[in-house]
Design a protein around this nucleic acid. Structure first.
Lengths: 342, 342
DNA sequence: ATCGATATTTGACACGCGTAAATTTACAGG
DNA sequence: CCTGTAAATTTACGCGTGTCAAATATCGAT
């Protein structure tokens, strides 16, 4: 199925009996040429399997067909899942997704944005590190490249933000916990991004609305090794008996998984049944939360909607030229996932 | 700090008072120009912050500075960790890592290799899907592009293979389990890659060597949702009472996490202490295995060494021209990680 | 057959950089 | 100061594609 080697569009055009500019047009949009022409080209395509040189193409386009995807920490399956979803949708639209992880490091995040700039992407989907992010750098980047933020917001930056309605989701689970047992305390580490802050505040508000005194347990810890922090500080918390309630609501599932392990280590039975010493709940419905012991009660973030809407919004910006409309924040509601831990 | 905008190397060369070819040489290797020249260029660099156009560069290089990294399933933190490590080491060497995930789909794996080819990468680090991989496609790809396989082997393909010594690691844990309690059965799903086969066979050999009858429990299941399979089939296994021993060695940690959840669900206490009905062990020392309840006894794969050696091997091939030496398989030993589950 | 509206072809230039050959300049050592 | 050598410059061409203007071909409908 291979004829003589084809090096460039010139040769391929000759081989298919079509002029080079027309072939170029074909590769830009298959339907922009006459049907009979398209047939000829596609026949030749099977015979010689030629592919246009990406670098030569992109050199001459002001914008490429690349879509940058930046997540803060790829070793977190939550982001891996979202990235997978986003990648697929970009491919479906004929774009080329390029995935980056900041690995929790602000320096790397900056470097990535820098590299991304020279890739001349059509658009970028960015989930910032959060508190650690260099907001000046991000703002400047968003000024140059059509960017949609997701997961973690940076106020006023980018074309749009897509995320979760932490206020809604937290009050959902706070209400559930209060309804079914002792009012929860709130277990958090230093807030790594705005979501963490919003969740704590939402917890306090929900508790006050329900007439309970809020109790925030703020522990030390940094970085993205949440389970480790949850475990270490969970042990400390349990040993020091600073717990005024038998119910712990964790700022996120990974933290909760750590606390779960700590409770197990300290011999505390976790669950909502009789004979249980502790109820533990999380937030996110992390991919692994179904398989903890006991399975984790949590609030599911709407992964699919967040990634879908992010992509849709970005392409809306790309196709309709851009900053015509005001920046929009879209927040998706969480769903209560009752399992056995609380 | 910005003068007038610089569009290309021509203008930048003029602005820095150096000829364009010399500037080009500088960007190729900073130390290939005289110190005084380098200073001049770098001063101009601060004033104008110009960056060469990647696409124009790559168009003219037969090989780029890109390194392709392909993993079978990025939502598995094991691969996310390895990818992170590999990315960093490529960056350190002045190369540009590009990360791809096959997401468990052979079609996508093929597409990725296809795209990769047109990226003209200097080299590729490939962890194949395994059984599902289209081996013909992979072999052909490795023939065109310097490729080092890791994690999952395809016999005779690529410049080298870096992985774990499953035979050693499995017999390590089988011996441990036999020494400290009842000999284990082996819990596996249909082998997704050669490692799975090797582990089963290593189990059988180790058991026979120790004078115990091997017992392999082969359950149904497919795809990369190992926890789900472990959970579902774990429940079935426990309910049907087909267990002839109180010790279960799982083909990998993620499977073990599922079985752990199943045991919890069925009210079986897991651990090596008194009052425990079941011992469960895994293989890999998955990032989350420390935080299961109880913490999972397993064999640690040498993540760091595998990724380090893979990168080193690839650069050895890249720099020393290639297939001078015979293809080498490098296997790293596992280390026993005793925790509470077995 | 004729005509108008599209599609295509031709020819040419642009993009930004790699790279080679020949020439000139800079620098260290005597 | 001279000289040999390493480094820099000049000049020029090549890479593979985008894109434009003008000329020509094709097609459907009148």
């Amino acid at each position: 199925m291979e004829g003589p080697k084809i090096k460039n569009m010139e040769e391929f055009a000759a081989a298919s009996g079509i002029s080079r500019p027309t072939v170029s047009k074909y590769f830009h949009d298959m339907n922009s040429v006459r049907a009979s022409t398209r047939r000829k080209i596609e026949e030749a395509l099977e015979q010689y399997d030629y592919r246009p040189n990406i670098y030569a193409i992109n050199q001459n386009r002001r914008l490429t067909k690349n879509i940058g995807i930046v997540v803060p920490y790829l070793a977190d399956p939550f982001f891996a899942e979202i990235a997978r979803n986003i990648e697929r949708r970009c491919l479906d639209r004929g774009f080329w997704p390029i995935l980056f992880s900041s690995h929790g490091e602000p320096t790397l995040e900056n470097d990535i944005l820098d590299s991304l700039r020279s890739l001349k992407p059509a658009g970028v989907l960015l989930a910032p590190l959060g508190r650690a992010s260099d907001k000046g750098v991000i703002a400047k980047f968003c000024n140059d490249v059509p960017t949609v933020l997701f997961d973690s917001n940076v106020e006023g930056v980018g074309k749009a933000f897509i995320g979760s309605d932490n206020s809604q989701s937290i009050s959902l689970i706070v209400e559930y916990l209060c309804r079914t047992g002792e009012p929860p305390c709130f277990f958090e580490m230093p807030p790594i991004n705005p979501n963490a802050n919003k969740r704590r505040n939402a917890y306090i508000q929900a508790m006050e609305r329900l007439g309970h005194p809020p109790h925030v347990i703020h522990v030390k810890g940094e970085g993205w090794g949440f389970e480790e922090v949850g475990y270490r500080e969970g042990i400390r918390m349990i040993k020091s008996r600073e717990l005024s309630t038998n119910t712990v609501l964790c700022s996120n599932d990974r933290l909760a998984i750590g606390v779960l392990a700590a409770a197990y280590g300290e011999g505390l039975r976790v669950g909502r049944g009789g004979g249980c010493a502790l109820r533990i709940a999380g937030h996110d419905d992390h991919p692994f939360s179904r398989f903890t012991c006991p399975p984790l009660t949590t609030v599911a973030q709407d992964y699919a909607s967040i990634s879908d809407r992010s992509v849709e919004t970005l392409f809306d910006v790309i196709e309709n030229g851009g900053p015509t409309e005001k920046r929009v924040d879209t927040l998706f509601e969480g769903k209560l996932v009752m399992r056995e831990s609380a």
